[in-house]
């Protein structure tokens, strides 16, 4: 059991982080904490992608040349697949954008009501 968890540690970790993130979004009343929960959630998925593309003993996906000839053998099993990393760069940009917009929302909400607690905020808004 423990061996199994240790062997797939990154996946368990990202699963755990997803759970923490979900708890943050559902269980916490503060809007800021909800946002943090969402961030944890997104990071967990990014971790999942990166862990999935991990390969021990592999090298950079760069062709090494000498005098115009490729000197490294081009065997795919010797390279780390770069695509997930590129995708995750995009995903990080997306999540930064979302976080930025969300924080701007929170600033506006706070200026309006001086409050970021969901329940009391709902009460104030309903008035």
């Amino acid at each position: 059991m423990i061996d199994e968890i240790a062997a797939r540690f990154p996946y368990w970790a990202s699963g755990l982080l997803i759970a923490i993130g979900l708890y943050g979004m559902i269980g916490k009343r503060s809007l800021v904490k909800k946002l943090i929960g969402m961030n944890i959630f997104q990071s967990a998925i990014i971790l999942f992608f990166i862990a999935g593309s991990l390969r021990h003993g592999a090298t950079l996906p760069i062709l090494l040349r000498k005098d115009g000839h490729i000197i490294e053998p081009i065997a795919p099993e010797l390279y780390v697949n770069p695509l997930p990393h590129v995708l995750m760069l995009t995903a990080i940009v997306v999540s930064v954008a979302i976080t930025g917009v969300a924080l701007a929302f929170l600033v506006r909400i706070y200026r309006e009501y001086e409050d970021l607690d969901e329940e009391s905020l709902l009460k104030k808004v309903r008035q």
Partner: peptide, 27 residues
């Protein structure tokens, strides 16, 4: 403005979770 701000924030959280889950599935 007003209640739309709260609705927008809630939509943002839920929508981002939806997007992230979709990304996880694609992974």
């Amino acid at each position: 403005g007003g209640r739309a701000m709260l609705a927008g924030f809630r939509y943002l959280i839920l929508g981002s979770v939806g997007g992230s889950l979709y990304m996880l599935g694609v992974g």
